[in-house]
Design a protein around this nucleic acid. Structure first.
Length: 262
DNA sequence: ATGTCCTAACCCTTAGGA
């Protein structure tokens, strides 16, 4: 059985429901994991997904900020929702497929502007979130796919300028080390980089603030799809939809899709 | 230092977060 799973930071699912529908119509993915849905569960736009055949929906939303959701054509059960920041924010939801596969959808905190936990509590919260995620991951025994907006671009070729971003939250050495500890705690395989190997450029986010995002191309790879070591060989294809950054009323992130043969 | 976008509210302009 072949299944396709996508991850996309949508920056408001209600405001961007048109491009979500376009994405589902064009790709027909089996499962879509969204981050930054920015909607409470009782106001989620269920009808649009129902009409397109995504009858199975797991929501973990809140008012105004954050929020994650898993929309699926395949039946799935909610496995867990973790609060790795220990402050009640809606940043994770996990699902279990009928075949037992676990899918974890996560929105790691952005971490504010100053890369110092003493001057900027948000930066400390980001590191602590990753620390709790690492403890969870070290105890994990089942084949798992973890997807989402990690808000860290770990490799030099994950950013437009390694040198210019060394002090910029998302690419600081401390964040990269913290993410590497998470990766090592379970032997996570970075599927994006298994298919698009360094030093090739690979970005999933471009700021809204650039006059012409494509011309300046100051991108970062903030979004990831990682697999347990025993699941990774099942990944047969991986792609990012860079074109979606140009769609009407775009998100600043683009979707990525993995194909698993199970 | 700046740029833009989305949400909600002391609601048509501003603040906070990203």
């Amino acid at each position: 059985m072949s299944i396709t799973i996508a991850s996309w930071n949508i920056n408001s699912v209600r405001f961007r429901i048109d491009i979500v529908e376009r994405f589902l119509a064009e790709t027909g993915v089996d499962i879509l994991c969204l981050q930054e849905t920015k909607v409470m569960d009782d106001a989620f736009p269920h009808a649009a997904f129902e009409a397109m055949g995504y009858r199975h929906r797991l929501l973990h939303g809140q008012r105004m900020h954050h929020g994650v959701a898993i929309l699926s054509r395949i039946p799935l059960a909610e496995a867990r929702r973790n609060d790795w920041q220990d402050n009640g924010e809606a940043r994770h939801i996990g699902a279990r497929l009928p075949n037992g596969l676990l899918i974890e959808n996560v929105y790691v905190p952005a971490g504010g502007d100053i890369p110092d936990r003493l001057l900027n509590p948000k930066f400390g919260q980001k590191l602590d979130f990753l620390g709790r995620m690492t403890d969870w991951s070290a105890a994990l025994r089942e084949p798992t796919l973890i997807v989402g907006d990690f808000n860290i671009a770990p490799l030099e070729c994950d950013v437009w300028s390694h040198k210019a971003l060394l002090d910029v939250v998302s690419h600081t050495p401390l964040e990269v080390e913290t993410l590497e500890r998470f990766q090592a705690s379970h032997g996570w395989v970075d599927l994006g980089r298994r298919f698009i190997a360094p030093p090739e450029r690979l970005y999933t986010w471009w700021s809204y603030r650039a006059a012409d995002w494509k011309a300046s191309d100051r991108g970062r790879r903030l979004d990831h799809i990682w697999a347990s070591p025993d699941l990774a060989p099942a990944a047969k294809a991986f792609l990012v939809l860079e074109d979606a950054r140009n769609w009407g009323k775009p998100s600043d992130h683009i979707p990525q899709i993995v194909t698993l043969d199970l």
